[in-house]
Amino acid sequence: MKTRAAISKAPHEPLVIEEVEVDEPRSDEVRVRVVASGICHTDAIIRDQWYPVPQPVVLGHEGAGIVEQVGAEVTGLEVGDKVVLGPSFCGQCEQCLSGHPMYCTNFYDQNFGVRRTDGSTAFSAADGTPVGSHFFGQSSFAEHTNVVARSIVKVADDAPLDLLGPLGCGIMTGAGAVLNVLRPEAGGSIAVFGTGAVGMAGMLAAKAAGVSTIIMVDIVDERLKFAEELGATHVVNSQSADPVEAIKDITGAGVDYALDTTGVPAVFSQMTKSLGIRGHGALVGAAKLGTEAQFDIGTLLLSGINVSMVIEGDAVPKEFIPRLISLHQQGLFPFDKLTKTYGFDEINTAFDDSAKGATLKPIITY
């Protein structure tokens, strides 16, 4: 069948909306009519080739939609089901089998290979040229797409699909880093570096977990004010104050937990130094391959801190996404306040607004 898709053709260039041919879903795939898709920082850095992903390619990895066709070997999904699309994983390696599919041994090929394992793509241009597909198993910047079934999460018939897509990556990453990795105790303290959608999701998760001291760090006063409105107890503008000193002034000895959503080396170092004794910090911010950060092993040796590198919130999507939906329904995780909706034809405007910080979490609706 034919469908419209937003294609990334060159680094730093706008996506181009064109009609493409979609092939038949394989036996382990499902064809989904995409209702909406979030835009994530990862889409932008892949467009700009921070990671060597072949172009042309259809990006998008925060999709939500309705099942239109089911492969012969797929179970548990039917035509008409509402679904949220998560990252891809092999389901067979040691990490997948031990409950950590976001650390799948084959994660890079599954999510950044933009080909099936047999080398084929789901999309092709009008002249028959292959167009990369299966980005994070889904390539959701298309009105219709073929998705690896194991990464699909079925949701309720009344689920708001125009909102839920970001639960498949950005929101899951921030919230999962807090709830699945840091696992803060009620009454504890946390510092979150970065007030983008991932950082705000981490903050909302910390609040839902009962953390009593929530410190947000950023350089944009408007974002920090918004963080206070959503539940931050303290904010620090790191351009006007040393965040490590400010955090220790607030807590007395450093925070119990910390989250770096920026991927900026200097910020990562600040995060490690802001932790109290036996504190636990997590990095989720993506940086270019080969990026290094200073880590003061001489001073920090005595602190007993832990630092975790976290992908996709170390989540099991079929368990964690329904958990976040439940928290949202209870009013405990209002991630909808982070979003703004754009039409498909406005996709490049949405990318620009996200890059400028004008929108925390853009969602494209089809």
Score class of each variant (00 low, 15 high):
residue 221 D to K: 10
residue 270 Q to I: 10
residue 230 L to D: 03
residue 136 F to W: 06
residue 320 F to H: 07
residue 217 V to G: 02
residue 223 R to P: 06
residue 286 A to L: 14
residue 261 T to C: 06
residue 134 H to E: 14
residue 212 S to I: 02
residue 31 R to P: 10
residue 342 Y to N: 09
residue 115 R to Y: 02
residue 236 V to S: 04
residue 25 P to N: 03
residue 230 L to F: 00
residue 170 G to Y: 00
residue 342 Y to I: 05
residue 143 E to P: 11
residue 204 L to F: 04
residue 253 A to V: 14
residue 269 S to F: 03
residue 166 P to H: 03
residue 63 G to A: 07
residue 55 Q to Y: 06
residue 47 R to E: 11
residue 43 D to E: 03
residue 229 E to R: 12
residue 48 D to I: 05
residue 119 G to I: 07
residue 89 F to C: 08
residue 240 S to F: 09
residue 365 T to G: 08
residue 214 I to L: 09
residue 20 V to L: 07
residue 234 H to C: 07
residue 319 E to S: 15
residue 194 G to S: 05
residue 13 E to K: 14
residue 326 S to A: 15
residue 362 P to V: 06
residue 244 V to Q: 02
residue 132 G to S: 05
residue 241 A to W: 09
residue 281 G to V: 11
residue 238 S to C: 13
residue 115 R to F: 05
residue 258 A to N: 04
residue 172 M to V: 14
residue 155 V to P: 11
residue 269 S to K: 11
residue 306 N to I: 13
residue 54 P to Y: 02
residue 141 F to R: 03
residue 146 N to T: 10
residue 278 R to D: 14
residue 119 G to Q: 04
residue 119 G to L: 02
residue 278 R to I: 13
residue 286 A to T: 15
residue 148 V to I: 15
residue 249 D to Y: 08
residue 247 I to S: 04
residue 362 P to G: 06
residue 361 K to P: 06
residue 9 K to N: 15
residue 230 L to N: 05
residue 74 V to A: 02
residue 54 P to T: 06
residue 92 Q to V: 14
residue 5 A to M: 07
residue 201 A to G: 09
residue 231 G to Q: 00
residue 31 R to E: 12
residue 71 G to E: 03
residue 120 S to M: 05
residue 124 S to P: 08
residue 74 V to Y: 01
residue 5 A to Y: 08
residue 319 E to Y: 11
residue 68 E to H: 09
residue 208 A to N: 08
residue 240 S to W: 11
residue 225 K to M: 10
residue 17 I to F: 07
residue 349 T to H: 09
residue 17 I to W: 00
residue 32 V to R: 02
residue 317 P to E: 01
residue 345 D to H: 12
residue 328 H to S: 14
residue 129 T to K: 11
residue 72 A to L: 10
residue 48 D to K: 01
residue 113 G to N: 01
residue 184 P to K: 01
residue 100 H to C: 14
residue 363 I to F: 00
residue 6 A to V: 10
residue 307 V to T: 13
residue 321 I to H: 02
residue 297 I to W: 07
residue 207 K to T: 09
residue 191 A to G: 07
residue 159 A to H: 05
residue 318 K to R: 14
residue 65 G to A: 02
residue 80 G to T: 14
residue 128 G to D: 05
residue 36 A to Y: 04
residue 20 V to F: 03
residue 165 G to D: 01
residue 138 Q to E: 03
residue 89 F to E: 08
residue 146 N to M: 05
residue 346 E to D: 13
residue 12 H to F: 12
residue 145 T to Q: 06
residue 194 G to T: 05
residue 247 I to M: 04
residue 271 M to R: 09
residue 291 T to C: 04
residue 128 G to W: 00
residue 284 V to P: 05
residue 273 K to P: 12
residue 226 F to V: 10
residue 324 L to I: 10
residue 11 P to C: 00
residue 271 M to A: 09
residue 134 H to L: 15
residue 75 T to H: 13
residue 152 I to M: 00
residue 66 I to C: 09
residue 285 G to H: 00
residue 85 L to M: 08
residue 51 Y to L: 13
residue 86 G to T: 02
residue 123 F to D: 08
residue 173 T to Q: 05
residue 19 E to L: 08
residue 55 Q to K: 13
residue 276 G to R: 03
residue 316 V to W: 06
residue 53 V to C: 01
